[in-house]
């Protein structure tokens, strides 16, 4: 079943066309990877899907919604699309636990009667906060950071920050989780752990994943479906095995063979 349907997506910045008439789909329950050389427009596609850019043209269908017409925070709040960032964006001076609580903002805001009920400490809000802490604890346990719950997020080692950012995105209860290079800067052991975490998210939480990644061990290891971009255009689309054998992909990554070049 199709979850995300990108149709004729085009994004221009002045004279530069970063994404050029791109169409692809991502199925519910799948891990879909977007790969391509540097500057191929992968992050631009992400920014269009998650509302950080307004596409020049095209439709991004998610259920009955068109994400291309929605803006900013409403995509995370109403369409339930969560994302992480290429350069980690945690709240560095807040604690690990607080990062996960902030992610449950909208739910807690309603429970706190938009602050009024919370100000007077009504039981409904206290209940909701307790539930939010329980959820955060469950995620901390899954990413192995329970012991560091009260430390500042900015003091965590790099790999732990990556995991925390994923957990934080998951605390918003998404249906689609978009990960922008989750394995960047991780060592081999950490990226193997990441693979397990991502597969677990799909399995246990039933969340579909869309990821941009350069680390081919991650991409080939866990993706069900790969979309390859080059110069903002889709050049291939298929299963990992198909992509590996695709001559267009090999050309994009290794360059045009000239004579005896290999």
């Amino acid at each position: 079943m199709t979850l995300l349907k990108v149709e004729n997506l085009t994004m221009r910045f002045g004279g530069l066309t970063a994404v050029d008439d791109l169409s692809f789909t991502a199925n519910a329950g799948d891990i879909t990877a977007i790969i391509g050389p540097n500057g191929a427009g992968k992050t631009t596609v992400f920014n269009c899907i998650t509302g950080f850019y307004k596409p020049t043209r095209g439709r991004i269908g998610l259920g009955a919604l068109d994400l291309a017409q929605m803006s900013g925070h409403t995509i995370a709040a109403n369409a339930r699309v969560a994302r992480t960032f290429q350069n980690i964006r945690l709240f560095p001076r807040m604690t690990v636990l607080e990062n996960l609580i902030v992610a449950q903002h909208n739910k807690l805001m309603r429970a706190s009667g938009f602050t009024l009920a919370g100000l007077f400490g009504l039981p409904g809000y206290r209940q909701a906060e307790k539930a939010a802490v329980e959820k955060a604890k469950a995620w901390l346990d899954r990413i192995d950071l329970l012991g560091r719950a009260d430390d500042e997020a900015g003091n965590l080692p790099y790999g732990a920050q990556r995991r925390l950012e994923i957990a934080r995105a998951m605390c918003t209860d998404p249906v689609l989780l978009c990960l922008d290079e989750p394995a960047a800067g991780l060592n081999a052991r950490e990226s193997a752990e990441l693979n397990r975490l991502l597969l677990d998210i799909r399995q246990r939480d039933g969340v579909s994943l869309l990821l941009i990644e350069h680390d081919m061990n991650v991409v080939m290891g866990i993706s069900d479906h790969i979309v390859v971009l080059d110069y903002g255009k889709r050049i291939a689309d298929g299963t990992p095995a198909e992509i590996r054998a695709d001559p267009a992909v090999i050309r994009a990554y290794l360059g045009e063979p000239e004579g005896d070049a290999a």
């Binding site: 998650t50 509302g51 950080f52 900013g72 925070h73 409403t74 995509i75 995370a76 709040a77 109403n78 969560a82 994302r83 960032f85 964006r89 945690l90 709240f91 560095p92 001076r93 807040m94 607080e98 902030v102 992610a103 903002h105 909208n106 934080r168 995105a169 918003t172």
Partner: peptide
């Protein structure tokens, strides 16, 4: 406080 730390991350969390 989250807004002070990172406004873009806030948006991504639906705030």
């Amino acid at each position: 406080e989250a807004l002070r730390e990172d406004e873009i991350a806030c948006k991504a969390l639906g705030i």
